[in-house]
Amino acid sequence: MDEQTRIQIEAAAFRRLQQHLMQDRPDVQNIDLMNLAGFCRNCLARWMDEAAAEMGVTIGKEPAREMFYGMPYETWRAQNQTDASPAQLAAFEKAHQG
């Protein structure tokens, strides 16, 4: 497989993950993703920003979030995110010690 085809496949898989998290499963909370997988939607947006920086392109935290979420983060958050429960917060603390 040539490099360009590999890049296109990886990009398509990323777009599918983004669609899944944003459209198919907006009910899954970021804290649950962090607790189970060690990353969340905000991490993905940060990784986009970091990848851009490696290529000499400046995006920034909030614009990268808007790129990933398809809307301002605060809008998505107000529509989809709930307050973390004590159990979720305790799991987060346990999973992310040190």
Rank of each mutant, 00 (worst) to 15 (best):
M67C: 08
P86L: 07
N42C: 09
M1R: 03
M55C: 13
L89C: 05
Y69V: 02
E54Q: 14
H20T: 05
A11T: 15
Q88D: 10
A64R: 10
G38C: 12
Q8G: 12
R65I: 03
E66S: 07
W47C: 11
V28W: 06
M34Q: 14
E66I: 01
G60D: 10
P72L: 08
P86Q: 14
L17W: 04
P72C: 06
A37V: 10
Q79H: 05
Q19N: 02
C40F: 00
Q79V: 01
R6Y: 03
I7E: 14
S85A: 06
T5M: 09
W47Y: 05
L44C: 10
A12Y: 06
N42M: 10
L36S: 07
G98K: 07
M22G: 00
N80W: 12
L36G: 09
M22H: 02
Q29C: 08
T58F: 04
D32C: 02
Q88S: 01
A64F: 08
E66K: 06
E50I: 13
N35A: 05
D32R: 09
Q97V: 09
D32S: 06
C43Y: 08
W76P: 02
R41Y: 00
M1D: 13
T82S: 08
M48Y: 01
N80I: 02
G70P: 01
A91N: 07
D27S: 13
F92G: 04
Q19V: 00
K61N: 04
R65G: 02
I9H: 09
C40V: 02
R16N: 11
R25Y: 07
D83K: 03
R25E: 14
